[in-house]
Amino acid sequence: MTKKKLWSLGIFIILLSIIVYWFYFSMPTSFPTNEQLVEEMNSIFPEATASIIQDTIPVDERHVLVPFISKKDDYGLSYWVWKNHKWKVASIDTKGEPMLWKFNINDPSSLYLVWNIHPKDQLSSIHFYLIRDRGYRITEGIEHYDPRVQMEKRVFAQEKSYGLMQLSDDWVTFMNAYIKVESAKQPNLFINNFSPKQDMFFGWIPYDQTNKETFPESSVNGTRYSDGEVNLEYVMILDKGDIEIPR
C-alpha cells in the first residue's frame, strides 16, 4: 500500500472515529423547552394529549423524568433519554401510578420509584414496601426456611403530585444480599429478574386525608407508549391485609 493510500486510510479512520463519538458518546446538549417536549410527546403518542409540563427532573446526565398534565386532565409521566446525539422520549404513561425505573437490574442502587398522583384522589401519603415472602422448602432432605422481610418508606403527597425516589440504603443493602444468595443458587434464572421465584416484590398503599386506605381511581389504568429504551416495572398496589404489623 502506497503512502498516499495509507494517509487517506488514516484520515478516513480519524473522521469515522469523530463521527462515531459525536453520534454515540457526545455529552448531552441542553434539554428541550416545555413547548418542544409537549410537541414531541403528542407527535409520537397522540393519546398522551400533553398540555402542561409540571417539571423536568434529571436522574443523571442522560435520563430525565418529565411529569405532565394532559388536555384530558390526566397526570402522567414521560421518560426521556439522550441517544444518538439527541433527546428523545422513550416512554409515556398517561396516568401516574407508581412505577419502578430500572437502570441496571443487577444494581439496586440504580432503581428509582416514580409517580404522579392526580389531586382528585386527595392522597395524604403513599407507603412503599419492599417485601420478600417467607418460604419453606426441602432440598436433598435438608429443610430451609426463609423469613419474611418487609421494609417500608413513606412519602407525603400533598405538596407535589409527582415524585422520584432512589431506593434507600437499607433497601439496597438487603437487595444486594438477596441477589448474591439467589444468583448463587440459580445463576441461569437470575439474569433478567431480581426475583425468579416471584418471592420478592415492590408494593404501595395510598392513604387519604383522614389517613385511611383508599383507591386512587384517577391515577391508575392509563395507556402507555414505549420504544423499549427504558426498563419500567409496575409497582403492585396492596391493601392492609398484605402487610404484617410487628407485635
Rank of each mutant, 00 (worst) to 15 (best):
F174Q: 04
T139F: 10
Y136P: 00
E244Y: 09
H127N: 14
L232R: 04
S183I: 03
S218G: 04
G241D: 15
V181T: 14
E40Q: 13
V20F: 12
N106K: 13
I237R: 14
K160M: 09
N221M: 12
T223K: 12
W82N: 01
F201K: 07
E217A: 13
Y24S: 10
Y112E: 08
M200V: 13
G135R: 12
Y79T: 04
Q209I: 12
E182D: 08
L238C: 02
V181P: 02
M165R: 04
F25V: 00
S183V: 06
L111K: 11
R148H: 06
V235T: 11
M27K: 15
S26P: 00
D133K: 15
V38F: 03
G76L: 02
L77H: 02
N106R: 11
S91W: 01
D208V: 09
D133T: 11
P147Y: 01
M175V: 13
T94H: 02
L6R: 12
K240Y: 10
I117C: 03
F68R: 02
F45R: 01
K5R: 14
I179D: 07
E229R: 11
F194N: 07
P108Y: 05
S226A: 13
L111F: 14
L6E: 10
K95C: 03
K180N: 06
W87S: 02
Y24A: 13
R148Q: 08
I44P: 05
L9Y: 07
R132V: 09
P46G: 04
P119A: 06
Q150F: 06
G135I: 08
G163P: 07
Y75N: 01
Q186A: 11
L77Q: 05
F201V: 01
Q198T: 08
Y207W: 06
H127D: 14
S43Y: 09
T2G: 15
D169S: 14
L189A: 13
H85W: 12
F12D: 00
K88T: 13
M200G: 04
N116T: 05
P206S: 00
T2S: 15
L77D: 03
G163S: 08
P147W: 00
L167N: 03
N176A: 07
K180F: 05
G10S: 10
K72H: 07
Q198K: 14
K153S: 13
S218E: 07
I92N: 02
F215D: 03
F194R: 12
S168A: 14
L16G: 03
K102H: 06
G228W: 03
G241I: 11
S43N: 10
Q54R: 05
E229K: 08
N42G: 01
E97S: 10
L167H: 10
R134W: 15
M41C: 02
D170N: 11
S26D: 09
M165V: 05
I105F: 10
I131P: 00
S218T: 06
F25T: 00
P32C: 01
I18V: 12
P67T: 07
S17N: 09
K83Q: 12
F190D: 04
A90G: 03
